[in-house]
Design a protein around this nucleic acid. Sequence first.
DNA 1: GCCAACGTTGGC
DNA 2: GCCAACGTTGGC
Length: 151
Amino acid sequence: MHYWLMKSEPDVFGIDDLAARPGQTEHWDGVRNYQARNFMREMKTGDRVFFYHSNAQPPGIVGIVEVAREAYPDFTAWEPESKYFDPKSTPDNPRWFMVDVRFVRKFEHIVTLDELRANPKLTDMPLVRRGNRLSVMPVTAEQWQWILKME
DNA sequence: GCCAACGTTGGC
DNA sequence: GCCAACGTTGGC
Protein backbone atom coordinates (compact mmCIF):
# COMPACT_ATOMS: atom_id res chain seq x y z
CA MET A 1 0.00 0.00 0.00
CA HIS A 2 1.25 3.42 -0.94
CA TYR A 3 0.29 6.91 0.09
CA TRP A 4 -0.47 9.92 -2.08
CA LEU A 5 -1.73 13.47 -2.07
CA MET A 6 -4.09 14.95 -4.64
CA LYS A 7 -5.11 18.57 -5.04
CA SER A 8 -8.51 19.86 -5.99
CA GLU A 9 -10.16 23.24 -5.87
CA PRO A 10 -13.15 23.03 -3.52
CA ASP A 11 -15.06 25.49 -5.72
CA VAL A 12 -14.78 22.93 -8.52
CA PHE A 13 -14.75 19.60 -6.68
CA GLY A 14 -14.19 19.43 -2.92
CA ILE A 15 -14.20 16.57 -0.46
CA ASP A 16 -17.86 17.23 0.38
CA ASP A 17 -18.71 16.80 -3.28
CA LEU A 18 -16.99 13.41 -3.26
CA ALA A 19 -18.82 12.36 -0.09
CA ALA A 20 -22.12 13.25 -1.79
CA ARG A 21 -21.52 11.14 -4.90
CA PRO A 22 -23.21 7.77 -5.34
CA GLY A 23 -21.04 5.24 -3.55
CA GLN A 24 -19.00 8.22 -2.35
CA THR A 25 -16.87 7.49 -5.42
CA GLU A 26 -15.90 9.60 -8.40
CA HIS A 27 -13.35 9.58 -11.18
CA TRP A 28 -10.46 12.03 -10.89
CA ASP A 29 -10.46 13.70 -14.28
CA GLY A 30 -8.58 16.63 -15.69
CA VAL A 31 -4.98 15.80 -14.81
CA ARG A 32 -2.98 17.22 -17.73
CA ASN A 33 0.54 17.02 -16.41
CA TYR A 34 2.81 14.11 -17.26
CA GLN A 35 4.43 13.74 -13.88
CA ALA A 36 1.07 13.74 -12.11
CA ARG A 37 -0.31 11.30 -14.67
CA ASN A 38 2.60 8.94 -14.13
CA PHE A 39 2.00 8.93 -10.40
CA MET A 40 -1.67 8.10 -10.97
CA ARG A 41 -0.65 5.15 -13.10
CA GLU A 42 1.36 3.80 -10.17
CA MET A 43 -1.64 3.86 -7.85
CA LYS A 44 -3.11 0.58 -6.63
CA THR A 45 -6.60 -0.13 -5.40
CA GLY A 46 -6.73 0.58 -1.68
CA ASP A 47 -3.90 3.11 -1.66
CA ARG A 48 -4.67 5.99 0.66
CA VAL A 49 -4.73 9.58 -0.54
CA PHE A 50 -4.74 12.90 1.28
CA PHE A 51 -7.36 15.20 -0.24
CA TYR A 52 -5.92 18.70 -0.51
CA HIS A 53 -7.94 21.84 -1.14
CA SER A 54 -6.08 24.32 -3.31
CA ASN A 55 -7.23 27.84 -4.08
CA ALA A 56 -9.04 27.64 -0.76
CA GLN A 57 -9.16 29.68 2.44
CA PRO A 58 -7.02 28.30 3.87
CA PRO A 59 -5.41 25.77 1.56
CA GLY A 60 -4.71 22.45 3.26
CA ILE A 61 -5.42 18.75 3.70
CA VAL A 62 -9.07 18.19 4.53
CA GLY A 63 -9.40 14.41 4.66
CA ILE A 64 -8.59 10.98 3.32
CA VAL A 65 -9.81 9.10 0.26
CA GLU A 66 -8.78 5.78 -1.24
CA VAL A 67 -8.10 4.50 -4.72
CA ALA A 68 -11.21 2.59 -5.85
CA ARG A 69 -10.15 1.89 -9.43
CA GLU A 70 -6.70 1.89 -10.96
CA ALA A 71 -5.70 4.11 -13.85
CA TYR A 72 -7.80 4.07 -17.03
CA PRO A 73 -8.08 6.56 -19.90
CA ASP A 74 -9.45 9.98 -19.01
CA PHE A 75 -12.39 10.16 -21.41
CA THR A 76 -12.88 13.89 -20.86
CA ALA A 77 -9.86 14.37 -23.14
CA TRP A 78 -12.03 13.03 -26.00
CA GLU A 79 -15.00 15.33 -25.38
CA PRO A 80 -14.72 18.50 -27.47
CA GLU A 81 -17.09 20.31 -25.13
CA SER A 82 -14.98 19.49 -22.08
CA LYS A 83 -12.57 22.03 -20.68
CA TYR A 84 -10.12 19.14 -20.48
CA PHE A 85 -10.43 18.28 -24.18
CA ASP A 86 -7.11 17.35 -25.80
CA PRO A 87 -7.21 16.38 -29.48
CA LYS A 88 -3.87 14.64 -29.10
CA SER A 89 -5.43 12.02 -26.83
CA THR A 90 -7.47 9.40 -28.68
CA PRO A 91 -9.28 6.22 -27.60
CA ASP A 92 -6.71 4.23 -29.59
CA ASN A 93 -3.80 6.04 -28.03
CA PRO A 94 -4.90 7.74 -24.81
CA ARG A 95 -2.53 10.34 -23.45
CA TRP A 96 -4.28 11.10 -20.16
CA PHE A 97 -5.46 8.81 -17.40
CA MET A 98 -7.55 8.95 -14.28
CA VAL A 99 -8.32 6.85 -11.24
CA ASP A 100 -11.51 6.52 -9.22
CA VAL A 101 -11.36 7.62 -5.60
CA ARG A 102 -13.70 6.79 -2.74
CA PHE A 103 -14.33 8.98 0.29
CA VAL A 104 -12.86 7.59 3.51
CA ARG A 105 -13.18 10.36 6.08
CA LYS A 106 -12.92 14.06 6.64
CA PHE A 107 -10.44 15.46 9.12
CA GLU A 108 -11.95 17.03 12.21
CA HIS A 109 -9.60 19.91 11.62
CA ILE A 110 -7.99 20.91 8.34
CA VAL A 111 -4.20 20.60 8.33
CA THR A 112 -3.30 23.87 6.68
CA LEU A 113 -0.48 24.53 4.26
CA ASP A 114 1.02 26.87 6.86
CA GLU A 115 1.07 24.06 9.41
CA LEU A 116 2.58 21.63 6.90
CA ARG A 117 5.29 24.16 6.06
CA ALA A 118 6.03 24.69 9.74
CA ASN A 119 6.72 20.99 10.35
CA PRO A 120 10.43 20.26 9.81
CA LYS A 121 9.58 16.59 9.14
CA LEU A 122 7.77 17.58 5.96
CA THR A 123 10.30 19.78 4.20
CA ASP A 124 10.89 17.09 1.56
CA MET A 125 7.28 17.13 0.40
CA PRO A 126 6.92 18.72 -3.04
CA LEU A 127 3.78 20.36 -1.69
CA VAL A 128 5.62 22.74 0.60
CA ARG A 129 8.29 23.67 -1.89
CA ARG A 130 8.17 27.09 -3.42
CA GLY A 131 6.53 27.33 -6.79
CA ASN A 132 5.45 23.71 -6.81
CA ARG A 133 2.43 23.00 -9.00
CA LEU A 134 2.32 19.22 -8.99
CA SER A 135 -1.28 18.15 -8.36
CA VAL A 136 -0.63 14.45 -7.66
CA MET A 137 2.33 13.40 -5.55
CA PRO A 138 3.57 10.49 -3.46
CA VAL A 139 3.65 10.73 0.33
CA THR A 140 6.05 8.58 2.34
CA ALA A 141 4.70 6.39 5.15
CA GLU A 142 6.58 8.56 7.59
CA GLN A 143 5.12 11.78 6.23
CA TRP A 144 1.68 10.19 6.29
CA GLN A 145 2.00 9.37 9.99
CA TRP A 146 3.27 12.83 10.87
CA ILE A 147 0.40 14.50 9.10
CA LEU A 148 -2.14 12.27 10.85
CA LYS A 149 -0.72 13.48 14.16
CA MET A 150 -1.31 17.08 13.04
CA GLU A 151 -5.00 16.58 12.44
C1' DG B 1 -7.06 40.08 -8.99
C1' DC B 2 -2.02 39.80 -9.05
C1' DC B 3 1.87 37.56 -10.30
C1' DA B 4 5.91 34.18 -9.56
C1' DA B 5 7.01 29.80 -10.88
C1' DC B 6 6.80 26.42 -13.94
C1' DG B 7 5.49 23.28 -18.01
C1' DT B 8 4.53 23.26 -22.84
C1' DT B 9 4.69 24.82 -27.53
C1' DG B 10 6.62 26.01 -31.72
C1' DG B 11 9.86 28.75 -34.67
C1' DC B 12 14.30 28.50 -36.04
C1' DG C 1 17.80 20.96 -29.59
C1' DC C 2 17.50 25.72 -27.97
C1' DC C 3 14.79 29.04 -25.94
C1' DA C 4 11.25 32.87 -26.09
C1' DA C 5 6.51 33.19 -25.76
C1' DC C 6 2.62 31.68 -23.81
C1' DG C 7 -0.76 29.47 -20.68
C1' DT C 8 -1.69 27.57 -16.18
C1' DT C 9 -1.32 26.83 -11.25
C1' DG C 10 -2.12 28.29 -6.93
C1' DG C 11 -0.66 31.17 -2.89
C1' DC C 12 -1.44 35.51 -1.38
